[in-house]
Write a protein that binds this DNA or RNA. Structure first.
Length: 267
DNA sequence: CAATGATCCTGTCCGC
DNA sequence: TGCGGACAGGATCATT
């Protein structure tokens, strides 16, 4: 499940493998995967990428045709660098055809992923309201306190809310709360200042470590070169039976998702 | 507005 | 061997 570190890993791979190469076409092999803005500047292709950016779990590529690409991998999407001769695989939903028979294949078994091509001036219309970037200075305990004060929903639900923090998903929220020693079902508004500071620090630390390890490959996530990330080897509670201190992990359902935590280490 | 639940979708796993 | 059903979950929409 690509979260911020996985998206950043894919984006870093794109910056290296796509660079300013000419994109000749964007083929769609599954109805609904590629979304066209009515105000696309024609011809959209061929085009070259002039800027690569990430906002939350969205990748935004600025093209020199006046258009932009917004890519969201959702659950199972991946981009794989290959050749244009590869016949579309069973789960290939779209394909960027490059010069010299190169291609970027968009593989997405569960079909939730999306690629938007839009006029660059319309990019914001295709992005939802997103909260702070967790690695920006703006994301500190003052911000978190402001967003969570008075809220009664479990802390985990709100850390997953992209309108509050952009980029966290189920795996990293579980890991962050374990490090901060806060139970995921605690009402968010009741978290102490000291704990909020810990959550902010641990969020930044976990994300930086995970980016450093090229993300977490739990099920489908792969890098552009189809290699796995390595952070799955450093998870402490997610899908674990015991925490590092040997206590049994408890699994509960929050926000419709499996939530792993240590009932002894986390208060 | 806040909180919760259903929905989309398919590969995988489990029990029979 | 194969079938049905539960499960996985990011974002969005509907409901209370």
């Amino acid at each position: 499940m690509p979260e911020l570190p996985e998206v950043q890993t894919v984006l870093d791979g794109l910056i290296k493998s796509l660079q300013q190469k000419e994109i000749r076409t964007l083929d769609c092999h599954y109805d609904g995967t590629v979304i066209h803005d009515p105000e696309i500047i024609q011809p959209a292709f061929p085009a070259r990428t002039t800027a690569f950016a990430r906002r939350g779990k969205y990748m935004i590529l600025t093209l020199d045709s006046g258009n932009s690409l917004i890519i969201h991998l959702r659950m199972t999407g991946k981009l794989v660098h290959g050749t244009a001769q590869d016949s579309p695989g069973k789960h290939e939903r779209a394909c960027f055809v490059l010069a010299w028979e190169e291609a970027l294949h968009f593989i997405d078994p569960r079909t939730f992923g999306k690629i938007v091509i839009c006029n660059t001036k319309n990019v914001q219309n295709y992005l939802p309201r997103l909260g702070a970037e967790p690695l920006d200075e703006e994301f500190d305990h003052h911000y978190l306190k402001r967003m969570l004060s008075g809220r009664k929903a479990p802390i985990k639900n709100l850390l997953l809310d992209q309108r509050i923090i952009a980029g966290l998903g189920n795996i990293y929220v579980s890991e962050i709360l374990y490090r901060s020693r806060v139970r995921p079902d605690r009402p968010a508004g009741m978290i102490t200042d000291k704990e909020l500071r810990a959550i902010v620090q641990d969020t930044k630390a976990v994300l930086r470590e995970a980016i450093d390890k090229n993300g977490t490959s739990i099920s489908d996530f792969r890098r552009i070169d189809d290699k796995s990330g390595e952070f799955q080897n450093f998870l402490k509670v997610y899908q674990k039976r015991q925490c590092p201190r040997g206590h049994d992990i408890e699994v509960i359902r929050l926000a419709g998702r499996g939530s792993f935590f240590c009932p002894i280490c986390q208060k």
